[in-house]
Nucleic acid binder design. Structure first.
Lengths: 122, 122
DNA sequence: CCGTATCCTTAGGGATACTG
DNA sequence: CAGTATCCCTAAGGATACGG
């Protein structure tokens, strides 16, 4: 029976003394958790997924999804057809993040309501 | 009865069409959620708090804590003594983030265990 | 349709030094 | 002790163009 809480995590030549800092390295940037959120209901075509995330550039979409793939949170499926068709979906480990992003999403929603930040409906 | 899910959130001259993106703006950077995590058990002296977050520079500590303060997630208490003493603590709204950062922390821990990323104990 | 590559700009963030 | 200010550098990230 070991207490891991003080132990060092090593990943890709980087070191983390806190598992939260480590988790943030994996999904804590501007787009990764948005991608996970938009994959929560199942596989998505590449183009659709990218369009669903407003204001993401092509470059950052590719960059983020490749990183998620490398960390085994997202799976890539290529259909050998013309024109090419690619789908992304969460892996089993990736799915364990869904409750967290859902909670954070809900938190943001409630914060915005409480502070009256929602723009009036047109 | 309104569905806010598609509505626009406006905050500090920025616009967000997704409450998750908005939440990430508030706490999704490299240090803010670490600060919240380290304040979870109550008020902390400024110096102690900063030391508890390894590898944060003075500049980024100040920057992050000021942002959290401005967003009313963290409260600052100044004791008028010499030498100066300053404490930070979570506001009521800030406290509602604790379960989320705890979950994310736990997730990182389990991911690290599963992939054998913990460095061997010396 | 999907992805990579290149170029370029901005913002994130460290180090140091200095004030109340 | 707590915080600000300056300097400077690296990396995040947008725009565009091109290839399978």
């Amino acid at each position: 029976m070991e207490d891991h809480s003080k132990n060092l995590i090593k990943y890709n030549d980087k070191e983390f003394n806190c598992s939260l800092a480590f988790a943030l390295q994996l999904i804590g940037d501007k787009y990764k958790s948005l991608i996970i959120y938009h994959l929560k209901d199942g596989p998505q075509r590449s183009g659709e997924l990218q369009k669903s995330i407003t204001d993401i550039s092509n470059r950052m979409f590719t960059y983020s999804i490749r990183a998620l793939e490398k960390d085994q949170l997202v799976k890539r499926k290529v259909y050998p057809v013309t024109p090419p068709k690619v789908e992304y979906e969460l892996t089993e480990v990736g799915k364990t993040l869904i409750p967290i992003v859902l909670e954070l999403n809900k938190w943001g929603q409630e914060f915005a309501k409480k502070h009256y930040l929602y723009a009036p409906a047109e």
